Amino acid sequence: MKESLPMARVLTRTHTGDYFKFLLGHSRRNLPVVSRGVAALLLVLAVVVGPAAPAAAQPSLAEIEAELDAQWLKLEPVIEQYNKVRSELKANQKKAAELDKRIAPLSLQASLAADEIGEVANSYYRTGPSSELNALLKTGSPTSLADQLLVLDRISKRRQQQIAAVVETRDRYLAERQALDELIAQQKAQDEELAEKRKTIDAEIDRLEQARLAAYRTTGYSGGSGASGPCPAESVGGAAGVAVGTACAQIGKPYVWGATGPNAFDCSGLTQYAWASAGVGLTHFTGAQWNQGQSVSRSEARPGDLVFFFSDLRHVGLYIGGGMMVHAPRPGQPVQMENIDNMPVVGFKRVG
């Protein structure tokens, strides 16, 4: 019996098809024998293969969502720090461009003025004063060459003082430009460092998101779509009404970190986009938006106010009344309505 088991393994792997052909080739009078042979073969196969090993338990949807939430708690502060660096970098690059516009004419003005002094002096000493300068000198009634030279010297000194003022302003701008260049270089380095850190966590988020989508396909569930009900929960007019209406119109669009619309958003990108439609500029960074608004209590909150979450201000939504907001939650969850009490509220800010 010990020797027959290896033969059975060989049979099942290489000769199963030939064996069944052999069995089927027998005449009908040998059918009972064939049946007994088939039964014996099936018994051997059952012994060799054995019962199937139990499949590893797949995580439930709730477990996958919980793991995604845990990973998101790590990633969202990184993204907001990235948004901070990016917004500051853009602001400083804009300042640098504005300084360049101021520096260029000042440099030209100083250069032209210096050239002008040189030309006047050279012309005077080479050919005598021009008719314009001669008229100016005669206005002071100079009676001698020494008097004429004194007048010219005074003109030159006044012009030099003007040049000195121009050069001083230009040099101050150049110093500011140099400081900005250093800051921009630091921010670019921070941007690259955060990008690398974000890649690591993004890869894990993507892995979990694929597991989440697979679980949804298995169960036929399409994933959470946020709270139902009218949007906005309370009607409001003016600029706040425009912002709220714009936010409500984005429901269902995907979350993409760093996105500011119109096809995808992150949390501060959505609030920036909503209020931009009402003519109010917000920085694409939750911390900056916190400082751009006026604090209001929860009892005073009204549609259009920004509502912030967590002690580090990592998340923001647009309040729409009735304890509800529109926000961009995280990857895998589109822009949606949600009860503000599903996260720890730290405050409300009014803009516009």
Rank of each mutant, 00 (worst) to 15 (best):
D181I: 04
G323I: 06
E76W: 03
G287R: 06
L24W: 12
V335H: 09
D191E: 15
G252V: 08
T169L: 15
F265V: 07
A55P: 15
H327L: 03
N339D: 12
A8H: 07
Q58G: 09
I320E: 13
T271W: 06
Q71M: 02
N30H: 14
A195C: 06
Q292S: 07
V296M: 07
R198W: 04
E338P: 04
M337K: 15
G220R: 11
A264H: 03
I155V: 14
S311W: 00
C267N: 15
P344L: 01
W290H: 04
T260P: 04
W275L: 01
S228Y: 05
V345I: 14
S60R: 04
E65S: 07
Y173A: 14
L106E: 12
A56V: 06
S295M: 03
R159P: 04
A259V: 02
K188V: 11
A91C: 04
A227L: 08
L270I: 02
G332H: 02
T12S: 09
R198C: 01
Q294C: 01
S141H: 10
H15N: 08
D181H: 11
F309D: 08
D191G: 08
A135K: 13
Q162I: 00
K197C: 04
D100C: 02
A57K: 09
S228N: 08
W290N: 06
S225C: 00
V316S: 05
T200N: 11
V345L: 06
I163G: 08
D181K: 10
G258K: 08
S268L: 00
G252K: 07
D147S: 04
T200I: 13
E116K: 05
P142F: 09
T127S: 12
G287Q: 05
A195F: 13
A278R: 01
G238T: 08
Q187C: 01
G224A: 04
T283K: 08
D100Y: 00
Q190G: 05
F309A: 01
L152D: 11
T169M: 09
G229P: 00
I103L: 03
Y125W: 10
H315F: 02
G25C: 06
S4L: 06
R207E: 08
Q186D: 15
L270W: 03
G245M: 05
A39G: 07
V44P: 01
Q292I: 05
L318Y: 00
V280D: 02
L99G: 02
S299W: 02
A243Q: 05
Q333K: 07
F310P: 02
V256C: 10
Q336V: 03
N342T: 14
N83R: 07
D69Y: 01
A104P: 05
K138L: 09
P262H: 07
G238Y: 07
R217L: 12
T16F: 11
T127E: 13
V244S: 13
G128L: 05
H315I: 06
A301F: 04
S60A: 08
L108G: 13
A40R: 12
Y125Q: 12
W275Q: 04
E204Y: 05
M324H: 14
R177F: 11
K138I: 13
K94H: 05
T218Q: 14
A239S: 12
A185P: 03
G347F: 00
G220N: 11
L68N: 01
R350H: 11
L152R: 09
F20R: 10
